Simulated scan of single mutants.
Amino acid sequence: MTKYMVCKYFLTIVISGLFVWTGCTSDDHTAVTFTSLPESLPEQLCASDILNDSYPFVYPEQILRYDSLLIVFDFLDRESVFHVFSDRDGRFLYSVGRKGNGPGEVIMPTSPTIDPTDRSLALWDARQKRLVRFRLPVSSNDSVRYLDYRQNPQNSSYFSQIIAHDGSYYVAGHVDPLRFGKLEQDSVRVLYSDYPLLTSEDAEANRSVWNYFPCTRITRDGRKMVQSCYVGAALELFSIDKDRIQSDTLLAFTPPIYRIIEGTRPRWVGTIDETLLGVLDVQISDRYIYALISQQSLTSDPLAAEGSAYIHVFDWSGRPVCRLKLSRLIECFSVDESHGLIYGMAFDEESGEYQLLRINFNSDDFQL
């Protein structure tokens, strides 16, 4: 088992330990039809250069870009979980989010989010059941400031991610009936509960397939959202209108192959050697969805399964428009569409270290 999959397995066990039995509802949806990723798309060959190959990353899981900052979420770092770099030259600036249970400290962080309304960087601490926020500095003379947190809203053990928009926070959950909701002062308002049937085994297994490390992204205007599937490759596209969420399009490419982890209630899935990894990361703009898709099994090529050299680009109707072929395998990324840049994290086999890359592409060449 590779280092990447050891981390995934560890997280699965930790999260499953938070579950309690809540009962489930049966969904009468028709099982989805899987289609292959299109092979005849226009393809861009994307050159890359190394921005930083000296910082000792432990397990970089996500890259966020804000203004001129690249914020790397390093889940397993024992000191701090965020490391901030200049997007111009890759220079390390500072770290924030120390491990611990004091003010401004975290124990079990989940995927972070940025709220531009107050320049805050936020995450949900699944162990402490609280929303932890930091204000990013405006200039180099400023320092990062710890803000506030909201603690113990109802059913907060079931959160897998929070997403900021316009001063509020949407919640992605993993126990029925909470798939998507909105965080309020001491509770969560459920907005959406349904899941497409990627597996017909039962409703709990299907829900778990969708919630095995999904990526959930909302556009800046708060009107569109996407969620990805990691155990098998799928993307579900949503529209949002005044907190009313509607599923618009489902793109399903790889059926899930998994095992049921013994003793979990509700039922929870894990990977096996034959699992074809799906969407490793997804980023969005107002125009496009960028999906880093693996489709490699853990036995056929473990190193390739950890990352991908292909980013598939779709419009918001679900139509494929381009495939970006990268010069390196990357595991997570961020997109600066206006400047034609992708920032990706690659593992260098020779040094055994992660490298922060800058990758060039041209969205003006996408098939319209």
Rank of each mutant, 00 (worst) to 15 (best):
S120H: 02
L123P: 09
V282L: 07
G90T: 08
Y230W: 10
C322M: 12
L368P: 00
R319K: 15
Q283N: 11
L280I: 05
I71F: 10
P38Q: 11
I293C: 00
P60C: 02
Q154T: 12
T271N: 09
P266H: 12
I107S: 12
G307Q: 07
A203K: 01
A164T: 03
A309W: 03
L93M: 12
L69K: 04
Y158K: 06
Y59Q: 05
Y158I: 03
E331C: 02
L368V: 11
K3H: 09
T33A: 12
G97V: 07
V282E: 02
D118I: 05
Y59E: 08
F238S: 15
Y343I: 02
D243W: 10
M108V: 05
D281H: 13
N152V: 00
L131K: 15
Y212L: 15
V106Y: 04
L121M: 07
Y310L: 11
Y55L: 08
L251H: 05
S208F: 00
R220I: 06
G232E: 14
A234E: 05
I289Q: 02
L277W: 11
I63K: 04
S120D: 04
E105R: 11
R207F: 01
L70H: 10
A346L: 00
N52W: 01
L357P: 01
F333A: 01
F347Y: 15
K325F: 09
I311C: 02
A233K: 04
S363A: 11
R223C: 13
E262N: 12
R133A: 14
L11M: 05
T22L: 14
I71D: 05
R319G: 00
Q161T: 13
G222S: 04
S327L: 08
I359K: 00
W21M: 09
E61L: 11
W268C: 14
D166L: 04
S140V: 06
S111Y: 06
L329N: 12
T117Y: 01
D221I: 00
L178Q: 03
V81C: 14
S48I: 07
A346W: 00
P116C: 05
R207L: 11
G270R: 01
I261C: 06
P137L: 07
S208K: 07
Y343S: 02
S16I: 02
L41V: 06
T219E: 07
V144G: 11
D28Q: 08
R207S: 08
C215I: 06
D118F: 05
D67F: 01
D118G: 08
A203F: 01
V231I: 15
